[in-house]
Design a protein around this nucleic acid. Structure first.
Length: 426
RNA sequence: GCGGCUAUAGUUCAGAGGCAGAACGCCGGUCUGUGGCACCGGAUGUCGUGGGUUCGACCCCCACUAGCCGCCCCA
């Protein structure tokens, strides 16, 4: 009989790696809190229509990468509903914004989320079918300033701060504007027009893209196509005055904060809902999956989902990729316990557990051995698990004076139990 | 979804059509209240799964599964 395994593209996260995940999440929460974001948790599956309308029917995500199933109709009167494991979280957040009428507060909503997302893609390093994203959205009515370029710059500055505090060095920020909801169709039309008589000379992928999603032609990496792409119209020339002013203001605010960026006129994002500002933070050493995070502005998404006008900007970072990057930058060791308690004889097991309880209540990290171990084994085991060992024999139990040895220095000393049990200062 | 590479011990990996290997790790001993070092000894396993060729397959062939790399796309 074959043994059961985690299904393709999913995996178990185990210690000590989970410590790194917790570190990343704690750092993100701490940074987000300083910018006054609150946490939102949306369901892990939603009505399929949410993603079809929000993310875009023609995107790869929706057309071929979703985990979708028909929920069972429980009664004659009930229709089977098509449900989907969320492939991203922005649509869910905006759905919640609409559902709970958060716009009625008149306030800007600043929400972050941390959780699993699901896409049925071919797994690779840094790409999984269940993957984890940390993201945030700033969304609200126009009157709350949700369309201000200040919001874009603030989000980007926050991300630069977060990556810095995580200790990720060597990232680059690529920035672009894809224009307003009316700019983009005009540009796409011009692009199609320009491609008409050139596409025949381009690669097969581009010929397909020119039909399905002409913006993606700009992303083509085939060297022979580059000269042709250079002759294509640029989105920057199709921005209306308001969009151009918006983009300029974002760049100026970033410069004022000292956040380094590169304008990349070819940076278009795959999801239909993006307008104006789009951006991507990348890092070398992730192979083909070099994007750490991506995001942008989505001024029309709420309305696409049947809600009120609610401009917004947000991003999603790939937590799996942050972990990979951090692991490569610094190999983290398993954390050692403060003390390994070695009871000398089985009669001292219960007192050892009681001592462990007292030390743990004092805030210390404790491993307890077993009185049936030979002392040599206690030392060997203790040396792997803890920084110091406490010997608990009859003498120590009677006197309350513990024998403590430091594994690193080899120094051994007698310390009163009462001294060790004192709450550690935090 | 497409193309390429890979799958042998807990781990990293050698290996040859005829008894399954190394290093590290693990277990025991030298050493019954003192670890790391040293020495001695021990166990590692459905050789990814299922078929086929062969007297004989871990090796050759086919399929499947999974991982990695690239494409597509994206975080």
């Amino acid at each position: 009989m074959s043994t059961l395994k985690a299904v393709r593209g999913t995996r178990d996260l185990l210690p000590p790696e989970t410590a790194l995940w917790n570190h990343i999440e704690a750092t993100a929460r701490r940074v987000f809190a300083r910018y006054n974001f609150g946490e939102i948790r949306t369901p892990i599956f939603e009505d399929t229509q949410l993603f079809a309308r929000g993310v875009g029917e023609e995107t790869d995500i929706v057309s071929k990468e979703m985990y979708t199933w028909e929920d069972r109709a429980r009664a004659q009167s009930e229709k089977a509903q098509s449900l989907t494991l969320r492939p991203e979280n922005t649509a869910g957040v905006v759905r919640a914004y609409i559902e709970h009428k958060l716009g009625e507060t008149g306030m800007l909503q600043k929400l972050y989320y941390i959780g699993p997302q699901f896409r049925r893609e071919r797994p690779q390093k840094g790409r999984y079918r269940q993957f984890y994203q940390i993201g945030a959205e700033v969304i609200g009515p126009h009157s709350a300033g949700s369309e201000s370029p200040l919001r874009d710059a603030e989000v980007l500055e926050m991300l630069a701060t977060l990556l810095d505090e995580l200790g990720i060095t060597g990232w680059t920020l690529a920035l672009n504007s894809v224009g307003s909801a009316s700019d983009r169709p005009r540009y796409i039309a011009a692009l199609r027009e320009a491609l008409k008589d050139k596409v025949a000379q381009m690669c097969g992928d581009c010929q397909r893209r020119a039909e399905t999603n002409p913006l993606r032609v700009l992303d083509c990496k085939v060297p022979e196509d580059q000269p042709i792409i250079d002759t294509l119209p640029q989105i920057a020339d199709f921005l209306d005055d308001a969009s151009r002013a918006h983009f300029t203001a974002v760049c100026e605010a970033l410069a004022a904060c000292g956040v380094k960026y590169e304008i990349n006129p070819r940076l278009v994002r795959g999801l239909d809902y993006y307008t104006r500002t789009t951006f991507e933070f990348t890092h070398d050493g992730l192979g083909a999956q070099n994007a750490l995070l991506g995001g942008g502005r989505y001024d029309g998404l709420s309305e696409m989902l049947g809600g009120p006008k609610a401009p917004g900007i947000g991003f999603a970072m790939g937590e799996d990729r942050l972990v990979l990057t951090l692991a490569a930058l610094s190999a983290r060791e398993a954390e050692l316990a403060d003390y390994f308690i070695a009871p000398l004889g089985e009669s001292l097991n219960a007192p050892a557990l009681e001592l462990a309880r007292a030390l743990r209540q004092a805030g210390l990290r404790i491993e307890v051995g077993d009185g049936s171990f030979r002392l040599k084994k206690s030392f060997e085991t203790g040396n792997k698990l803890a920084r110091k060992i406490i010997l608990l024999g009859e003498d120590e139990q009677q006197s309350g004076i513990l024998t403590v040895k430091d594994f690193a220095s080899g120094e051994q000393s007698k310390i009163a139990r009462a001294e060790l049990v004192k709450p550690s200062k935090e």
